[in-house]
Design a protein around this nucleic acid. Structure first.
Lengths: 140, 140
DNA sequence: GTGTTTGCAAAGTGTTTGCAATTTA
DNA sequence: TAAATTGCAAACACTTTGCAAACAC
């Protein structure tokens, strides 16, 4: 049972920021946004695209992921030094990260309270707060 | 004015986990732990070592950083997909991260309250909670 | 002496880039 | 048809690895 989400907002946004509706971008948008919230790496997206008969180069995967991120359609999550994750959920929220499997799971923002943050370093302002709850298998 | 911290605990720990007191490890330990809390990358440590007349290969830098991390003397921080930071402060605390400069700054744990975390995914337990407050220059 | 550690250079990984060919508007 | 986009392969930055020489105990 899959939650199917419309992604017309993606097309709108693409137009709004001047990204042409190419075969590759449309197909990737479909994979990314038609299956509910996802956390995906470039390689995984590439694999899924191939599996879905979409011919896309890895370079285009990276281009697209970054263009979508800049357009505010995706958010990049840093949890692992060796690869980048992209989250289709751009609203403010946090993550569980299972190191063994590389799996990410959402935590609604309402469930995390970070109060009393000290003032940011001189000359800077807070961009965003990332909370990563690292979890590991119980039997270890 | 520098805070000088004794690092005899490092020697003890090295012995405890069976790491031999080699010239390289001792010198790196000195650089790492004799100057208060630090957030450092492998490349930066390498540069500092060279500057301090310590001959160490980059391979040994990486080896040592990981050995110290496994021994509980360092903690790895993931804030940037492209490089690893190591923190000489292994106690529970969080960070400001200035993206433009790559600079990290401590936030005492007492200043962050993350209450009401949802239960971790089935079969896992919480390892640790990382809070990264990303900041950026005010005039942008 | 024996097992550990080091340094080098090569290999590996994920990501980016330059550029000609292709596609979109 | 002009400008944007793609795909390829080469280049990249950071990190890891294999192995002979050097070192600690």
């Amino acid at each position: 049972m899959e939650t199917v989400r419309p992604y017309s907002h993606v097309l709108k946004k693409m137009e709004a920021v001047g990204l042409r509706s190419t075969r590759q971008r449309l197909a990737l948008a479909k994979v990314l946004f038609e299956n509910g919230n996802r956390h995906i790496t470039a390689e995984k997206l590439h694999a899924e695209a191939r599996a879905a008969q979409i011919r896309v180069s890895l370079a285009t995967i990276y281009n697209t992921l970054h263009q979508f991120t800049n357009a505010g359609l995706l958010r990049e999550i840093v949890v692992d030094a060796s690869r980048s994750y992209f989250d289709t959920n751009t609203s403010s929220h946090h993550h569980f990260y299972v190191e063994e499997t590389g799996e990410l799971k959402d935590i609604p923002e309402t469930l995390v309270k970070h109060s009393e943050l000290p003032p940011p370093p001189e000359g800077t302002m807070i961009d965003r707060v990332d909370v990563v709850v690292r979890v590991k298998g119980e039997k270890e």
